[in-house]
Every structure is written in structure tokens, then in C-alpha cells.
Nucleic acid binder design. Sequence first.
DNA 1: TCAATCCGTATC
DNA 2: ATACGGATTGAC
Length: 685
Amino acid sequence: MTADPADPPRLPGLGRLGPRPGRSTRADQAPGRAAAEHQPVARVAVDSPLPHLDRPFDYLVPAELAEEVVPGSRVRVRFAGRLIDAWVLARQAASEHDGRLAFLERGVGAVPVLTPETARLFRQVADRYAGTFADVVRLAVPARHARAEAAAQPEPAASPSAPDPSGWSRYRAGPAFLSAVAQGKPARAGWRALPGEDWPARLAEAVQASLAGGRGAIVVVPDSRDLARVDRALAERLPAGSHVSLAAELGPETRYRRWLAVRRGAVRAVVGTRSAVFAPVADLGLVAIWDDGDDLLVEPRAPYPHTRDVAVLRSTLDGCALLLAGFAETAEAALLRQLKWSRPVVADRDAVRVSAPRIVAAGDDAELARDPAAQTARLPALAFRAARAALGAGQPVLVQVPRRGYLPTLACARDRHPARCPHCAGPLALPGAAQTPTCRWCGRAATEWRCPTCGGQRLRAVVVGSSRTAEELGRAFPGVPLRTSAGDTVLAEVPDGPAVVVATPGAEPVAAAGYGAALLLDGWALLGRPDLRAAEETLRRWCNAAALVVAGGTVVVGADPGLPAVQALIRWDPGGFAERELADRDALGFPPAGRLAALTGSPADVAELLAASQLPAGAAELGSVPVHQAGPPSRSKPEQTRTLLRVPRADGQALAEALHAAAAIRSARKSGGPVRIVLDPVELA
DNA sequence: TCAATCCGTATC
DNA sequence: ATACGGATTGAC
């Protein structure tokens, strides 16, 4: 039982193998056990959520597993006395570890689930989000299903022909991007789709280009309705069996079977929801994200990575093309564009003018329609007229209403601008019973608040709730079919013909021939949400709804036409708005211009984590606030606080490293309770 | 001086 | 969790 003498340079772990007096371990109990002749050491990552165990461990590969245990395979190892899962990162001739090595217990399944590319990606995602490798693997690799693994393997599909680039010719740099992808070049683009664009078709063409160039492709969309549309567009263009759709709701067996087909290289094109960005596509040539501002692209499980960030990392690591697409643009996409890291694929003003609906603002209560029916429905006169005209022309009308249940916060009583903290720009709210307005981010009391826009000093509570809207509209337009798409009854499509379609943002059905008009109600409430991204998010929702309206149709937005988001919608200039948004965030040092970390836990635990952290010099602690927990107040729930840390962009990696290291110290000491660490949280309410 | 026991910490 | 090493205790 010795190492191959040809193996350089030494094998310290083997030196002390064999029976030792007075000890009895598993390895000793199998004295006949021999290590693999070549590369007898397997470097593994163990499947443990503990941050201090988030590093490689070395094991000996038993001779009988020499072929089965390869880089990327799942194995079972005895770790601290227990059998746990692990992933093989590498096979090596020797180990750096100067203690005794244990043998791997067994292999799990025949398929190496990690590729060199995805293993590297998972490590980088973990590092960026102060999380562990194991947590990322659990997000990225579906649970193993033995039956799916045993099933017959599909034949690799034929390569498709090159796409017709004419759909992209309306966009400057569009055809150039497509041909770069077809040549396998790592082009990176931000695509702002024109209103009315058949974007699933365009994305399918981009996939087709990558496949025609001999490389694979991934398209990530926010939800299953979008998934179905892209799936259909791909099916129309690609040879049968050359793409799969991946989504969590498929069920474990189907999901794993499709994922395996991708892993084996039998399928090279993937469309899916957020975790599809991790799909092990061989020789990946393109990652495309549709509507990267949608918060469904934020993973809700630790370490909470954003699909866009993962895609950006993948583009860099795998040298593949990247397409960030949407009707609107995020500040993050604008930053990549401003850094010249990505190039804009946009239409010129003439094309926008031709395809955009007419957009008008009706932000004033005084403009409410005189028709009493319209008044109960809170419809401005403009909106009422636009809807009447569309219905009269036999077209459906889309009515977008905010979801119920936004937290009541504070706004200027005069001009309704959200009240923000003079110190950190966080939202002001009344904690509990009416007291002094207090910042929900930094906790400072705003005693001398004054509206920066109009100088007003009085505040009012902003409360939103619009489930009555459909009912009220029904009365405003008697005899017209009324459909609602919200919550758990989301419609994918509505037929042509007059109808009033009430939908919450993100649930707007597509109309076969387009809507004749759209009414975007309660816009001031959307804009008044207590969130850093409220304006950007509002514009995104408006653009997504307005894009469903026919060219020449009318969109009425119920908000103050003086607001920048409203102006951007009227001019259909989401790019300009995103740049402005980015400049604002730059001034505040918030993401994406700076980086934030939110630490949530008991006050003692958060304090302990902070004490153990060697934060970068530029780090600022913005303060701590109590976290309002969902559900009825209960004495059994421990008190929770959230502390925000802010660093300049360049210190982002150092911040994540410091927090991960501090979490490792705490978990090794087994001290205290959990602290949730979220980097660049999207919701900052 | 040695064995039994306790405690902190690493886990290959 | 468990297993190990080092420190501590207590009996000879």
C-alpha cells in the first residue's frame, strides 16, 4: 500500500497510514484497503452549510473507485465521524495535508455533476456573496434522481442553420451582435427592446446563432409564462430535441433528466428560470437574461445571488457572450454600459417613434372624469376617453393596478414625494403608534423634515390597495367583458376584441394583436414605495405594460408628469432614466455604484459578527433598525435587527471576504445564533 | 508518575 | 455530531 513511486513529490498523508497502537479508526479497520495507483488523492468540498468548513479536504481514493471518482463527481465521505456528501474538485498525486488521510467511502451516481467551468463559477458566486460553495451547489445542481440517471440517453441533436437576422436589423449593433455570437465571440450587449417587440423570437434567434457557431446557449427569464413563450420560439427555430426548458416546478425526475441531458452534452440550448443560469452547458457561447430588473431573478435562498451577477461572472469565466435584455434598463445594466463592458443594442429615435404608443400623464386628482362611474373607479378623464376609444375600435384595454399590501410609509402631504431620511436617503415611516418619523434604514429620527422638492413640512401616510378596481371598472364600462389577471389566476393571453383586462404588474396577459390602450393606475403609489429602486422598478413595470399596446395606441399613466420616471416613460427613454438613476446611486454610494451588505439577526449576534469582521477601511456602518417580522406579534420570536454596511465598489470583494471570514469564526466557535448576510440586497424597505 | 476525566477545537 | 489533543485532577 504505497504511492506510485512515479508520483511527485511526496505523499505525506500516506506516511502515517496503517495501524497505530492504541487507536482504532475506520481506515485502520480495513488494513487491506489500497489507494488508487494514479492520483490517489481526491480534493473534495463537503456538503456542509458551516462557513468554516467551506474549504477543500483531501481523501484517499480506494483502488476500486479509481475510475469512478473523477473531478466533478459526487461522493460520500466520513467527515468528523459522520457520512456526508461531498464533491470531488480534483484528483491529485499528493496532499498538502500533514495529517492522516481517510479513504472516500463511496461514489454517488455515474455522472460528474460539476464541470471545471461550473465548479469555478460556484466558487466565485460563493465568494462574491459571502456564502459557501455548498450553498451555491445546492442552488445550481438539482437533487439527484436515480431513475432519471438510469434512463436512456438522448441522441445529440443536429446543428441548426444560422438565424434570419432581419428581426435584429431595427437595432443599431443588433445584426453585428448576432454575427459575433455566431462566430463564437464573447460579445456583451445591453438590449433595450422596442415596444411591441416579439422578444422571445429575437432571443431564440440569438440562441440559434450561438448553436450555428458550434457553441451552447442559455436564456433566463423571470417566470413560467415567459418561459413558455421562449420555449415555443425555440421550438419553431431549432431541430427537435436540441433545446430543453428547466424550471423548479417540473418535478424532481423530469428536472434531473433534462439537466442530465444538458450535462452530457446531448442538449446545448437551455431556457429556464433563475437557476438555469448555472446550467452545465458544454462550451457555452451565450447567456441571455430577459428583464433583468425583475426581482424574481433574485435567488431567495442563501447566498441570495442575482441571476444577472451570475451571468456576468459566467461571461467572464467562460468567455461567452452576454445579453442583458428588457423593455426597460436597470442601473446595473447602465453601469456595465457606462464602463464600456457591454455595448448598447438599441433602436434609434425614429424606430421608437414608429413603434411606441402615445403616452400621456394624468397625475392630478382635479382631472378626474366628470362621469360618476369613472369617478368611483378613480379614472382620470384622459384615461376614460382612451379606454372608450380603444373599446370602440374593438380592441382590449389593459389596466395595471398595484398589488395590495405595500407597507404604509410617509410622503410629503403636498406633492406626495416619498419622504426620505436627510442623513442616508432611507424611507421614513412611523414606527408603531404615531411618533417621530424615523428612517427605516438607519433608524435616525427625522424631527425637522422638509420636502426637498416643494418645501412642505407636513407628512401623510401612503396606503395602497386596489383589489376593488376591477369591480369599479366593470361599472364604468358596462357590457364590456372584464378579465382579471393577478395573484394565483394569471392569464397568459387574452383574445382580440373589446375587453377590460385588469392585471397586477408582472401578470399582464399578452393580447394577440396588442392592446388598444393601457391605463397605469395609482402610479404615485408605485413610485412612493419605500425602496431604493422604487422609481426604476415603477418605470420597468410601466414599460412592460406599455410595450403590449399597439403602435398608435394610447397609454395613460396616473402620475405627476413632472416626475423623472414619468418623463422617461413619455419619451420612451428607459436608457436615459437608468443613467440618471445610476448617477443618483453614485451620489449615495449605493449599488451598483457602491456595494452594500445587510446583516440580520439578534442584536447580540450581529454585534458579535461585526466585532469579528476585519472590514475594509472604506466601510461605513449605516446603522441598525429593528426588523418587523411577518405574522402576528409573538413573544416567542427573538428580537431581530438589521445593520447595513456600505463600501465603495472597489472594496466589495473585501467586504464579502471579511463577512465570510467572520461568519467562519463564529461558526467554528459555535457561538450565538444565525446572522443572515445579504450582499447588495435588492429590497431595502 | 500515570491514568482517568474534562474541555476546547478541528473535522482530510 | 465525534474524536482528538492538551490540560487538569487525583491516587499511588
